[in-house]
């Protein structure tokens, strides 16, 4: 590795190349690619229909089948193939992860950039509101909202977005306030640039690395929140499989059939971990002030 750096001392490496050099980030990326592939190709690679209840899917006593044999990861309480449900569940996790986090990121960025650039009354009101949202017990609020509205996939995504935008707003706000005071923005103003132009052509591009980092880390939070809501039974509703609701449905039987809890549980942990690892590495790679530190 050291020789490669020495051989090409002039051209700095791109962000992606530097990201791929980190073993943990690479591991995270591989996991994410695997989950995305599993979700996208679920109809092709899933051995069974995720909602089909198989006659031979339960033992003679009516208990779920352990992993191995015709059902690679075993079956659930209703005799459905666990592997197929996990693969389709990956779709749920990723859709919620991307949609909910996308919405949260959008709200957070808009609030943060507006409050940070305009300051004044608008900024004060927006940031006080953000402070207020920080004092909300987020999970309690999400559970409450999800329990009250009959949760569909999209409602769950919306609920998660509504409680998750606050962190992004704070970070973007701080960055925008310091950017807005820099000389090049003052220069733009003197040249007669309008607010829209300054915001979208000059401030927003500087925020892109932050947005990428928080977007990646946020997916992890979102995946965890969806799993938790679904585990409590107020998230994505069965029969649509989600890793959280697979655990919710089979929890009563977990002493006899632990794989029904721990296989989807491991999936949740691995996916959240993957996004955390990649997000953390991205923070180091994209933020020049962090370079060279450990």
């Amino acid at each position: 590795m050291a020789s490669a750096v020495a051989a090409d001392p002039v051209r700095p490496k791109g962000a992606l190349a530097r990201l791929l050099q980190r073993k943990l980030a690479l591991f995270g990326l591989v996991l994410i690619v695997a989950v995305v592939a599993g979700a996208v190709f679920a109809p092709l690679i899933a051995p069974y229909d995720p909602n089909a209840q198989h006659f031979d899917g339960l033992t003679l006593e009516g208990a779920p089948m352990p992993p191995g044999g015709a059902y690679p990861l075993g079956t659930d309480l209703l005799g459905r193939d666990l592997l197929s449900r996990i693969l389709y569940g990956a779709q749920t996790s990723l859709i919620i992860g991307v949609v909910a986090n996308g919405m949260a990121l959008l709200i957070g960025t808009l609030v943060g950039i507006t409050a940070g650039y305009f300051r004044g009354i608008v900024g004060a009101v927006l940031m006080r509101f953000t402070d207020l949202m920080m004092a909300f017990p987020a999970l309690l609020l999400a559970i409450c909202l999800a329990a009250i509205f009959t949760p569909s996939l999209w409602i769950v995504a919306l609920v998660i977005a509504l409680v998750n935008w606050v962190q992004t707003a704070r970070v973007i706000y701080t960055e925008t306030t310091s950017l807005a005071e820099r000389d090049f923005i003052a220069a733009e103003k003197t040249l007669g640039a309008g607010h829209g132009r300054i915001l979208f052509r000059h401030i927003l591009p500087h925020l892109v690395p932050t947005i990428i980092v928080w977007g990646t880390l946020g997916i992890s939070t979102t995946v965890l929140l969806e799993a938790t809501l679904s585990y409590l039974g107020v998230g994505v509703q069965p029969p649509t499989p989600s890793w959280g609701n697979i655990i919710f449905e089979n929890q009563t039987y977990f002493q006899a059939a632990p794989w029904l809890v721990f296989i989807p549980g491991a999936c949740i942990v691995l996916l959240a971990l993957a996004f955390n690892l990649v997000g953390d590495a991205l923070r180091d790679v994209l933020d020049p002030t962090q370079r060279g530190r450990d």
Partner: peptide, 25 residues
């Protein structure tokens, strides 16, 4: 440090059920 990443990536109910299974059941 990798372990610390795993602990922030695990949902409460998974860790809870795991401890329950190992130490109680």
């Amino acid at each position: 440090m990798t372990t610390s990443f795993v602990t922030v990536s695990a949902p409460q109910f998974v860790v809870g059920l795991l401890l329950l299974y190992v130490f109680a059941v």
